[in-house]
Design a protein around this nucleic acid. Structure first.
Length: 208
DNA sequence: GCGACAG
DNA sequence: ATCTTGTCGC
């Protein structure tokens, strides 16, 4: 089913450039536009090295389990204009922690041919509750299988759900996400992408 | 049939 | 996803 989602690491040695991908929507938007953003940051300093966005009409609605069909096309367009490509992309959403083992992060990775990691803020399927300390983890279980890792990145904050996207092992994925989180709940690349996507949305809203 | 349901 | 200020806590 998801046999083409290789779990063998294919990441280069340091310095590492981390990518972040996210999409913003305007609620009740009659034009049904999506604002996609992809960014590249320095893993050591969190400095944003490059960013690109794409605003377009979404040709597919939001349907749980089919997010890739709605968000990936715009993300691919944004990616094509990203001047400096990252080594691995952290995508806001599920990777293999998906009903058919192929969430938006896998979808993006396969289409781009780039290593990706699924980093979701809530669950689509599965269960797993990590301890209270940053770095605490718990296997994300579903139907007797480990489909990802529930990761506590900050005390008192809900965990993040990390799962394999494309060509990155789960242990490596969890380590990279945790390392990109500094006292904050979300990983730096995803926050940067979220900000860029929101900027694009506001720009499109105030433009004639 | 009922409930759940990434962003 | 988004609507939204102040407010509670480290």
């Amino acid at each position: 089913m998801a046999a083409h989602v290789v779990t063998t690491d294919a990441l280069p040695p340091r310095p590492l450039r981390l990518g972040g991908a996210d999409v913003s929507n305007t609620r009740f938007d009659p034009t049904k536009r999506v604002h996609a953003a992809v960014v590249t940051i320095d893993a050591a300093t969190d400095e944003v090295l490059a960013a690109a966005t794409e605003t377009r009409i979404a040709d597919f609605p939001y349907v749980p389990g089919y997010l890739g069909f709605r968000e990936v096309p715009a993300l691919v367009a944004a990616w094509s204009r990203l001047t400096l490509k990252p080594d691995v992309v952290l995508m806001d959403g599920q990777g293999m922690a998906h009903p058919r083992g192929f969430g938006v992060a896998c979808h993006l990775g396969v289409v781009l041919g780039v290593p990706t990691i699924g980093v979701a803020k809530s669950l689509l399927v599965g269960t797993g509750e990590p301890g209270p300390e940053p770095g605490d983890t718990a296997p994300l279980l579903w139907k007797g299988q480990c489909i990802g890792t529930a990761l506590r990145t900050r005390r008192g904050a809900r965990p993040l759900y990390v799962s394999v996207g494309h060509r990155v092992s789960l242990p490596t994925a969890v380590a990279l996400v945790l390392a990109a989180t500094r006292g904050r709940r979300l990983a730096a690349p995803i926050r940067a992408a979220h900000d860029a996507a929101n900027d694009a949305r506001r720009a499109a809203a105030s433009a004639p």
